[in-house]
Structure formats: C-alpha cells, structure tokens
Design a protein around this nucleic acid. Sequence first.
DNA 1: GGGTAAACGGAGGATCCACTCCGAATGCTA
DNA 2: TAGCATTCGGAGTGGATCCTCCGTTTACCC
Lengths: 213, 213
Amino acid sequence: MGSTASPRRDARRNHERLLVEARRLFAERGIDAPLDELATRAAVGAGTVYRHFPTRDALIRELYDDAVDDLHAIAPEILGAETGWQGIELWLERLSEWLTERPYLPAVMRRVAELDPGHRPGAELQEAGDGIIERAKAEGSLRPDVTAVDLSVLVDMLGSLGQYGGAYLPFWRRQLAVVLDGLRARPDLTELPGVALDFDSFHDMSHQKRAAD
Amino acid sequence: MGSTASPRRDARRNHERLLVEARRLFAERGIDAPLDELATRAAVGAGTVYRHFPTRDALIRELYDDAVDDLHAIAPEILGAETGWQGIELWLERLSEWLTERPYLPAVMRRVAELDPGHRPGAELQEAGDGIIERAKAEGSLRPDVTAVDLSVLVDMLGSLGQYGGAYLPFWRRQLAVVLDGLRARPDLTELPGVALDFDSFHDMSHQKRAAD
DNA sequence: GGGTAAACGGAGGATCCACTCCGAATGCTA
DNA sequence: TAGCATTCGGAGTGGATCCTCCGTTTACCC
C-alpha cells in the first residue's frame, strides 16, 4: 500500500518553493489569488501546483499548520519568563511579531475555521496565557481588569500592522510600547468599559463569517 | 450638452441600494466579490449595476468618497474639544469608530491608492491633528514621544477590529481604553522605540503594494 | 391619460481561471 | 550507465464571472 518512500529531491524543492511563493502571493493579493500566478512565480507548471496541493484549501491548510508549528516553537521562551510582567511583555511581543511576519494568516485562519468549525486551536497556550496573567496580576504589575481575551485581541490588533510590509515592519513596536504602558497597573486607571469576553465567545467572534453590520 | 436634470426616482433608489449592498458584500467577501452577486443582493439586473458603476473601480471610488465625506462631518466635534487630552480621546474614539463601522475601507483605500498614487487625502485633517497633539503635550497630558503618525497607526489598529462584526462591535472600546492609558504622560514611561515617521513616509508605508516579506 | 426619454432586466458572447492529462524530463538505484 | 518510476510542463477543457445589448418597463411632463 502507501509507500513511505521519501519524495524525489526536485519534488521537495518545488513543494518548498510553492509554499514560499504562496506566502508572498497571499500576503499581496489575498488567499483567492489565481493559482496560475503561483505557478508562474514559483517557476513551475500549473500541473505541479495541483500535484502538491490538490485543492486551494489543502495549500491553505499547510500554511496554517506550518504557522502553528512555528507558534509552538515560540511558546517555551514566553513561558520561561522570569517575572510576571516580563511574561506579559514577551507574550505580546513574540505573538505580535509572529503575526506581523505572516500577513496572510488572518485570512488563512478564517478560511480554516470555515473548513472545520469545531476546531479549537492552542488550548494549552490559552491555559498558559491564563497562568501568565494570574502571575502578573498577583505581582501587581498588570492592571487587574484585563483578561486573556483582551490580550489576544491586542495581539490581533498589533498583528494587523503586518500589512505594512518590508522596511516598515519594525514600526509596529512603537504601538506595542504604547499598549504595554497601557497595561501596567496604576492607581489612576479608568476601568475598562463593557464586559470581558470568555474564550468561547472570542472564538465565536473571530470565527464568524465576517463583518456584516 | 450634459443635461443636469435630476435622475429618475427609481434610478436614485437603485443607486443607493447598490451602495448599501456593496458595503455589506465587500465587508463580507472583500472588494473582489462578484458583481453579479451584488446585483442579486440589491435585487436588480446585472445591467443596472454597470449602468450606475461602469467599472468596479468606479464603485470603489464612490464608497471611498462617501466615507471621506462622513469623516469630514466628524471633524468639527473633535476639533471642538475643551481640553487637549479630550481632543486626543475624541480623535482616537471617533476615528476608530468610523473605521470599525466600515470594515471594507482598508481594502478600498488600498485600491484607491493604487488607482491614483499621487493622492494625499485629508491634508487639513493632518494639520488639525498636529494642533491637537501640540496642545495636549503642552498641557502635560499626552506623552511627549508620540507623533501624529503614531496616533494614526493606532487608529488603524483599532479600526482593524471592525472585522469582528455585529454584536462584538462595541468590544474594541476595551482596547481603546488600554491604548489611551498608554498614551498619558507619566514619569516612568520607557521611550518609544525606533524612529518616528513623518506623514510622507506614513503615506508611502500605507500605500505600498502590500506586504512582501 | 398619452407621449417620450430614462432606466430596467437578464440572456448571451467574451474572458479569466481552475484543474486535468499525457508526452517529456529528471532523479534514483544498481 | 542503463532502466525505471517519479515528477514535470503547459496546452486544453469546462465552468464561473464580466460586461454588453436591446426589447420591455417605469417615471415624469403636459
């Protein structure tokens, strides 16, 4: 049955090349960009695209999985923070960086969520996040009225600045610094307005079809 | 020659209906959504779409112009702020609201920028913004290391949360509150990293093709 | 109401894109 | 190096979307 033999070298090369170009193409033109264009950019024939990725969704899926793998590789550094506040800083900084470096991700994640709606990604990371927040609040460095969902949304926001590509990429760190200063516990803060969302609501929120009004 | 007669009532009605549905459609599916779908949603024939908007870009242009008009209608309230800090609050709050209510705008603005690259929108608003910032800094309420560009980028960020449509729309105000707290002048702030951009660089940044790598 | 110009609807030709298929090329094994 | 399985390229088919065209309908004027 399915031979587990390693693929030929040219096949591996083309597969990798297609992923690289897909990331660039999807960042520039969105995940509905023509796949013939992908073939052209990767300097392969159209057939090769479809041999490696039978459907557009298979390609999107693989981009997603790769990004999630990279995310898991980042986790230990965040969890190894020495103080609670440093954990908060690392969390926002590393995750925002991860997002801004992958401007195609928001659309990819939305599509993946449509493909299998039951999918709850990174449950362990969420719990880890709760731990960091508890610690920082107990330490008195993090304002007490923020939740893990608030921080996730802040990461989303900062990550959206990845659309300013290339030379401007480091620029978002200024906004990060503002956000971090706004997260410090202080005697004179006004309470955050509205209600805090739990993770399930957040999941529903970020995975709904799209804005309507 | 060009008769300036007012268009027929059904024409006006359809024009308006098309704009309304285009905003919804573009918010949900992006500005490349099929225009036949727009015709269906607006309950008109395909011909009617193209009679009112000869090209997709003409439609996008009109959505853009309408949004800019709305923006100008907001300006007086911001400029009428009683204190410098209130000016900052109103600026961020009103502009972010304006953006989140129009989730189709980022893509629309990018397209408009591609269509005529020389276009510098809202020069007066920029100057007004500089005035507000000066005032707030002089007053000692706004941290001295932020620039008008930094605030614009923050608005961009907050506006990106408009993608969470419907019931979640008010949620972004929590993030706004964090940002505002991060903008207050305080003795113990760390200086913002990197270099402040001027408006020309910001323009180049937000109007370049798109993220590459 | 009747007449006229403006606007409408939607069928259909043109175009673009997705995806397949097979002869040619390439890497792997011995 | 020879032989073979794997992979490749890109022309071509089919379906979706764009956009036009013209017979029909609608609003407006008198």
